[in-house]
Amino acid sequence: MCGKVVSSAEMALFGVSAAVILGAAGAFFRIYRKTNRRSVLFLSVSAILALVETFYDVQGNWVAMVIFEAAFASIFTYAILNLVEEEGLLPRYTTISLLSFTPLVIATYWAIHGRWAGIEFDYTSTVIPYAVSGFFIFISGLFIYGIRTIYAEKAKRLSIVIVLLGIYKLSYPFHRDVMMANVIGLILMLILVLFGIYYMKRLGEEGSFRRSPRKKDNESPHGGLIPDGEQYKQLMRTLKQKQLLLFTRDIEWMSSSKWEVYFITTLKGENTISPTNLPKMLELSKRHFHAMGQSGERGIVVVECVEYLKEYSDFQTVVKFLSRLIDISKVYGGTVLIPITQEAWSERELRVMKRVIY
């Protein structure tokens, strides 16, 4: 089972693969250190498992190869589900997360049964457990597609990369023993891994991808507020060292290292949102409240451009948006700050807004 003669070409391929996979593990770990996201730490662990699987594949140890491939697929899928859950798009500790370990369970059962039945393991006997692992990686890519409402093109492209990686894993048993096809397939796989590292790094650079340290917060204001100018300035000074989500028309806020800031404009660019894209603002707010709640802090969302929003939507649409935002904050125990210029609103509009917010 383990007596395969390893050619120099196979060792060279393993060397290249090892360098790329170790690079992936290191890149993911650096993103973890920057964002404190548990999901990215699991991605780093899955990369190490993939490296071990590749080593046993080259050695021809089929049992170890399948076990570590399944462990890689399980931890990778679990990491992706954690990432989606961190965005508030999946309930916490769902059965789906436990199902991510299906490849490892099946591979372990396969190995134990094979030993018990005295089966002589060879490469062809690894097809089914390997296919299950590939299928779960494929499914992970579909889950990543779900965060496109927050991360747009970055999430879509990362989803495509993971889906293609899953397809490669599913096809691997068909070309494993054909040297030229194996080389081409491996090169394509390494290219996909490099693209995966790139798009994960892009996500790590997003302000909305950051998570706060795990500590309790008893100092943040509660409930929905409409402070006047001076009250608002005083509140923002007290929140200077806290993490909050800010939708603004003030370009000076964009340089804040502590806050997650989005510039509301009709122009396209990094960390910009159209004034008509209210659903994205709600989705980002939900993600922020969810992530902060998990870390033991009260989420804070500031909408300091509500007059600008009214220029592009009618009053009823803006009120529905604020009502929905307040509802989300109540569900997650968060805070919404909405500074306004009172002269920009009629008495009736102010009464309606105050009724919605309070």
Rank of each mutant, 00 (worst) to 15 (best):
F68A: 07
C305L: 06
R298Q: 13
R355C: 10
F121L: 10
K169F: 04
S97G: 01
E87N: 04
R148M: 05
K154F: 06
A117G: 06
I48H: 03
F247H: 05
W116A: 14
V40W: 02
K310N: 09
L309G: 04
Y78T: 06
S255G: 01
R176N: 14
L203D: 14
A71E: 08
N271A: 15
F72I: 04
M281C: 08
N36C: 07
G333Y: 14
S44G: 10
S159H: 03
H290Y: 15
L322Q: 09
R210T: 13
G333T: 13
H175A: 11
P279T: 03
F143D: 08
G196V: 10
L190I: 05
A27V: 01
V352H: 07
A291D: 09
A18P: 01
G207N: 03
M179L: 07
M65P: 01
L99R: 11
R157P: 01
N82P: 00
M200C: 08
S7M: 01
Y145M: 09
L104G: 01
L278G: 02
V66C: 13
I226M: 15
E219H: 05
R355L: 13
L51Y: 02
G134A: 05
S212A: 10
S313N: 15
V183W: 10
L142S: 06
A12Q: 02
F76I: 03
N61W: 10
W110I: 02
S7P: 02
S8C: 00
I147V: 15
F289D: 08
I300P: 11
L190W: 09
M353R: 04
I80K: 00
I300G: 12
D314V: 05
D314P: 11
G146E: 09
D217K: 03
A47E: 08
I160D: 13
G141C: 04
T265L: 09
W116I: 12
R298K: 15
Y312A: 06
V302D: 12
I273H: 08
A25K: 03
A79I: 05
Y93W: 11
K354A: 14
V331H: 13
L49D: 15
I187N: 02
F135P: 00
Y262N: 10
T108K: 05
F247S: 03
E219N: 07
E85R: 09
E153S: 09
G204A: 09
L98P: 01
L13N: 15
I338G: 12
P213D: 08
Y109M: 05
K216Q: 08
Y312S: 04
Y308R: 07
F101L: 08
V161D: 08
T54S: 14
F76T: 08
I167W: 00
V5I: 13
F195E: 14
G146V: 00
R211F: 08
I139P: 09
F136W: 15
F289Q: 07
I300Y: 10
L282Y: 04
T276F: 00
S256D: 12
R214P: 00
E206R: 11
L43F: 14
K156S: 09
M236Y: 09
L188D: 04
Y56D: 12
T341F: 11
A64P: 05
V161W: 01
N36Y: 05
K330C: 12
L322K: 06
Y168H: 13
P91Q: 04
E85F: 01
V183E: 10
Y308E: 06
